[in-house]
């Protein structure tokens, strides 16, 4: 069925859903901000961001602030588009 097809497997997890939601409304977020908001552990969050990065839904920029390494995440055009489709599909499924 076409409706189910639009449900994106890449977003089918609470943490990944959270990461995308945050990046939809913020230009970027760093690792610490995502961690605070999602209440995830370092390893857990890292594996989910990696998965989203692999799909090219988010962009990862590593930089240094002073001496501290800082990782910045932002949603790509593709990621935003796919996430919108995903939300639409969810809404339609609930509406039924």
């Amino acid at each position: 069925m076409s409706l189910i097809d639009n449900i994106n497997k890449a977003f089918d997890h609470r943490i990944r859903l959270g990461i995308m939601s945050i990046l939809m409304v913020n230009d970027y977020a760093d690792f610490k901000m995502l961690k605070e908001l999602l209440g995830a552990t370092d390893g857990n969050l890292a594996s989910h961001t990696k998965a989203l990065e692999k799909e090219e839904y988010i962009l990862v920029e590593k930089q240094f602030i002073g001496r501290k390494p800082n990782t910045r995440y932002s949603a790509t055009k593709l990621g935003k588009l796919q996430f919108k489709k995903h939300i639409d599909a969810l809404e339609k499924l609930i509406g039924k």
Binding site: L17, G18, N26, I87
Partner: peptide, 13 residues
Amino acid sequence: DISEIKNMMSRSS
């Protein structure tokens, strides 16, 4: 899922 999305969007911004 939807409520989690809404929650995260408003809480992060």
